[in-house]
Amino acid sequence: MYPPVDPIIFQFGPLALRWYGVLMLAAILVAAWVASREVARKGEDPENLWDMLVWILIPGFIGARLYYVFIQSPRGESGLGYYLQNPSEILKIWGGGIHIFGGFIAGGVALWLFTRIRHLRPLPYLDAIALGLPLAQAIGRWGNFINQELYGPPTTLSWGLRIDPQQRIQPYNDLSTYPESTRFHPLFLYESLWNFLGFAVLFWISRRFQKDLKEGDIALLYLIWYPLGRFFIEFLRTDSWFFPGTPFNMVHILSAIAIMIAVISLYVRHSPSATHNPNI
């Protein structure tokens, strides 16, 4: 498995068009189109969804980047230490290094503020975004492939990923121990496939059980599906900071919390007592 193209499509002086940015843009537009169709299906104005994008994307990307830099990145000269010594690098999102959980937090707050200002019901929009989000993640992860990032430990599996020595992090940049022939787990691929499958599952549920679903259920199902896959993939991460002496990091904690909250919420909302209270 080899990176098929140079990360830069073309460059004019200091300006460069990168595959990472193109894939991120494609992911956003595809997901927004899916979400707008879902919003219209629910009887809401899809134009509100497109207006909402600006409100969500800017704080979402900032939150995702800051989360990666200060919480997820490895401790040491190749991670947090590098960003602290070079603060101008912190906001260079196009070079890779964002984290979806930071985007969840900042984007969720932005969505809530937008719906409050526009006097909109937030749950239909939250469901629509949750439906399109796995598709965006599945597409966007291929930017990690081109940037030669988001890989796991060495593997002998046939789909192992080759990483150029200059793109490796410690200890895998030691060519005496890990020669250029070493292949690594393609974590971007695992997560991309999990998200493609998640989109298919959520889409099927949204149609098959539409009479039984309440507003907000698709968002809750997403908060089960994605964190479940991410919880296990995270054990193979090589670019994360882990709690000392453990195989766990902050993502494991946040994933477990999200899953528990979503499962309990779905149970409460669909319990027999909830049928008498449609607002649950």
Rank of each mutant, 00 (worst) to 15 (best):
N249P: 13
V34P: 02
A26M: 13
G229A: 06
T156R: 10
F101H: 02
Q166L: 08
G103S: 04
G216C: 10
I253Y: 14
F243G: 00
W55P: 05
W204K: 08
H119R: 14
F184S: 01
E89L: 05
I56G: 04
W94I: 09
D174G: 03
R230Y: 14
T156K: 10
E180L: 01
S36N: 03
V30R: 00
I205N: 10
A128D: 05
R75C: 03
R141V: 02
L123R: 07
G79W: 10
I169Q: 11
E89H: 14
S176Q: 09
F188W: 07
L189A: 12
L17T: 08
K42G: 15
A128L: 06
Q166A: 13
W94C: 01
R118F: 15
R162N: 06
A31V: 09
G160I: 03
F209L: 14
L29I: 15
F203I: 04
S73C: 06
E191N: 00
S78N: 05
N249V: 13
Q137T: 07
Y20V: 03
P14H: 06
P165F: 06
P74H: 00
R41D: 15
L135K: 07
L80N: 02
F10A: 09
Q137L: 14
I105F: 15
V268M: 08
I28N: 04
G107A: 09
W112G: 05
Y226D: 03
Y2C: 00
D127G: 03
Y20M: 01
R208M: 02
P244K: 04
T238V: 13
P247F: 09
L213F: 12
Q85M: 14
P14M: 11
P4Y: 06
L49I: 13
M52F: 11
G245Q: 03
A200V: 12
D212L: 08
I264S: 12
I146Q: 01
L193F: 15
E38I: 02
G60N: 00
L29C: 13
G96I: 06
E234Y: 00
F114P: 10
S88C: 01
R75D: 13
I9E: 15
N144C: 14
